[in-house]
Amino acid sequence: MITLSHYLIVSGLLFALGLAGVVARRNIIIIYMCLEMMLSAANLTLVAFSRFHVLAGLPDYSAQALVFFTITVAAAEVAVGLAIIVALYRSKQSVEVESVTKLQG
């Protein structure tokens, strides 16, 4: 029988994978993809709690509205982020995080 904790554990593992990717990878685009993965993992948690918190016989739609907003923000964030990456590539000719060390002094 599939319970709430099954969904929470899948979501937690997905978030952990995304976090590991953000820390370990050097390609900025892949770091971005891992960020998207973490956002999606949070969405899975929200949808799971929405389904298991039955309000008057229906799932809790407030949580799903929040997921809708998260997906919208994530889409806007990807568009702006990728524009920044393109601008960065124009000035550094590289998408590795090591190429951006200006603040290290």
């Binding site: 319970t3 929470l8 979501s11 994978l17 976090l19 370990a24 298991f52």
Partner: peptide, 30 residues
């Protein structure tokens, strides 16, 4: 660092979700 961080987070989430009072709720219960 990534593997350790990911593993710690995964264990943490598994522990918390197992301790949640509704964690053994199945779709049929709800």
């Amino acid at each position: 660092g990534a593997i350790v961080l990911g593993a710690v987070l995964a264990v943490q989430i598994a522990t918390v979700s197992a301790a949640h009072h509704q964690s053994d709720l199945s779709v049929n219960d709800a």
